[in-house]
Design a protein around this nucleic acid. Sequence first.
DNA 1: ATGAAAGCGCTAACAA
DNA 2: TTGTTAGCGCTTTCAT
Lengths: 356, 356
Amino acid sequence: MSRPSIRDVALLARVSVATVSRTLNTPEAVREPTAGRVHEAIDRLGFRPNHVGRNLRAGRTRTIGVVLPTFANAVFSECLQGLEAAARELDFAVVPTATDYRVEDEREACERLLRHRVDGLILTVANARESSMLDRLDRERVPFVLVYNPVGAGRRLAVSVNNRRAAAQIVAHLVDIGHRRIHMLAGSLVTSDRAAQRHLGYRDALLAAGLAPQPLVEMPNHLGGNVGMLRDLLGARHPPTALFCSNDVLALGVLRDLQALGRRVPDDVSLAGFDGIAFGTVVTPSLTTIVQPSADMGARAMRLLVARLEGRRNLDSIEMPHALRLGESTHAPASRPTRTTRATRTTRTTRQRRKP
Amino acid sequence: MSRPSIRDVALLARVSVATVSRTLNTPEAVREPTAGRVHEAIDRLGFRPNHVGRNLRAGRTRTIGVVLPTFANAVFSECLQGLEAAARELDFAVVPTATDYRVEDEREACERLLRHRVDGLILTVANARESSMLDRLDRERVPFVLVYNPVGAGRRLAVSVNNRRAAAQIVAHLVDIGHRRIHMLAGSLVTSDRAAQRHLGYRDALLAAGLAPQPLVEMPNHLGGNVGMLRDLLGARHPPTALFCSNDVLALGVLRDLQALGRRVPDDVSLAGFDGIAFGTVVTPSLTTIVQPSADMGARAMRLLVARLEGRRNLDSIEMPHALRLGESTHAPASRPTRTTRATRTTRTTRQRRKP
DNA sequence: ATGAAAGCGCTAACAA
DNA sequence: TTGTTAGCGCTTTCAT
């Protein structure tokens, strides 16, 4: 009734369990007639080696725990996709769990995974610098690799883009095409050190251009529902001509809210995001954004972790290249704000001026 | 150096390993002074119970394998999100893997997971009716639950919407608002029995209305890149006035391609999808579609499977409710095709006529 | 080339 | 209430 074990195979093939094990793991160490009998027995019984027994013996599981804020944001599910494909190639399994952006759940998530004896962890935490949990993992010598969290100074391994420089680049682009009043919108900064880095980049770019950074606008929720806040923002005396959102999901929500408010993007206000999720290219207007190679980042993180598990020393964090993707959601500001005048719709024909 | 085991705790607390185990699993069976010493030892050593040992002993792992076509399509990552949250609540871990829509990889994916001794599987396969792999799982008495795949006749457990009826409903809506030439677009039907069901629904609706179903248009790729095919389709003598896509990702890609072709949606052609992924509400025009409760479906599938693992009999498949979500991508057809005349843009002011 | 046996960490009989 | 011990399925010395 129960699944056959290596013993059943041994009995049927009239060999010892050791020989069965060898037939599977070091075939060159077993002679042909024996191996043949073993394979036959395996087929007859439908035997499938039990990794749990093997893992117990080996003290490792070839399993990687993955802690991400959510799987519902495409940036993370694309990463998971890359991660898992790489794991498969390396013959590892992946056990992912989501914290739903709750910092206080990160610890329990890791504990759960460690009880399952994952060999290592890949994680995106709210704040990599101030995480007592990461300190603990270090202390306990649990191998882990961060994704998305900024590459830090220490010997912690991380795979991420240079969030600060990337943000500075996209904001500099807005400045280049003529914007002077650029606001940055973000979700709660405490749940994302990436967003905090991007905010620094935003300030860098404005200060470098001799412009005044505006106070960060924190949005309560992510996918839409910020109509009131946006109305206030754009109804101010000197409204921004461009908005930089700390991530694409936020940007797409803002885009919808702006359209609900009757504001045209980019004619009334330009809009830029960060992450480069696929849907940014499908919306109208398509989203100007910074593209992170999420799937590749996941794959790199996996390979980095496995290399570490295999004892490789002198491994280094990876700073991945980002790219500025110009979409239709940004263009030069109108010389004067035209809130009441309905300008001709020019979306289709507008052409971006590229940076020289 | 190595992690402390239950033996180390026992030694330090000067009790037997059995007592340590009991302290953790049946605290009521151990007296206070003893329990105190054990807990102290646990803390001192930073002991974390090794689930691998426990699993080997118990013959189960409290781990569920999940096989999905991809994590990059929001419909599946939303499902995974719901799945994993439910698993956490039930104290199960989840090991997901993607087949990248390759039927021939489904078997190996399951084999891998079963070697890891997952207690059961949740899966979306290409074709649930003709899957020798599912037959095998049945034969081996591996507990599993299907998601998205149509609820079949047999005793197989599945969680899905009624794809055929839902598709018929959305197509009937197109008919109701005046469309007469409605084409259906889909990816390869062999990789999706859901799409096949939806195609039947499409035919049902047209036949019920006395209209001629058109041959299914199979699209080579998913997110965009079908410009040529669409040009041909819309350039035909009697071009369709409405397109029904077998899923939202396809629909959004088609939307982009149509816009690239200079065709206006819905003025030149109406467009409907299926799945109800979040981004359908963000694009302009927002997508008319059938909403499946993906996260909830994942959670239900997980609870159903766990109930089965716990020996509950008489469990039944779940047909989830779907909903027609009317977006801006559909409206009544122009009385005459106006391919050259540029009609006034009416997107904003157009109101859908709801079915009576 | 093959077998016997120990042991990975844990739980559950059974004993005391 | 606590301890002793067998054994879950496997790999790996150490013999032969």
